[in-house]
Amino acid sequence: MASAVRISAQAIRPARLAALTQLRCQLTETSYNPQSLRTGAKYLRARLRGPSMVGYYPDGFDIAQIVRRYPELEMVDEDEEERLVDVMDRKKRGKGAPKKAKTKSDSRRLGKKR
């Protein structure tokens, strides 16, 4: 009995089978793609990853940022003030950063011995 069913299935023309599949796709509202071509639909279907990516690092408490954002509060970033005082001290002792070279010949790199 089973073999009889198989023979009859083979006897159906491919065009008829294709039409059946097409009809089935219409009914189930899926796209009919007999050659299994890549449609790129997965790039549209996938969820957007950007929004969750942005929130990975927790927001730290940054005083410098707050001071910059609200100048009317007149807050003082003590660490920054201390750093500036240190820089001034170093400059007074002649240990500050060297002057920027105006021309190429001023560059200290040229005088460097290798």
């Binding site: 071509l37 890549r38 449609t39 790129g40 639909a41 790039y43 549209l44």
Partner: peptide, 8 residues
């Protein structure tokens, strides 16, 4: 990506 990967 959708356009570039779309074989149709």
């Amino acid at each position: 990506l959708y356009v570039a990967r779309n074989e149709t």
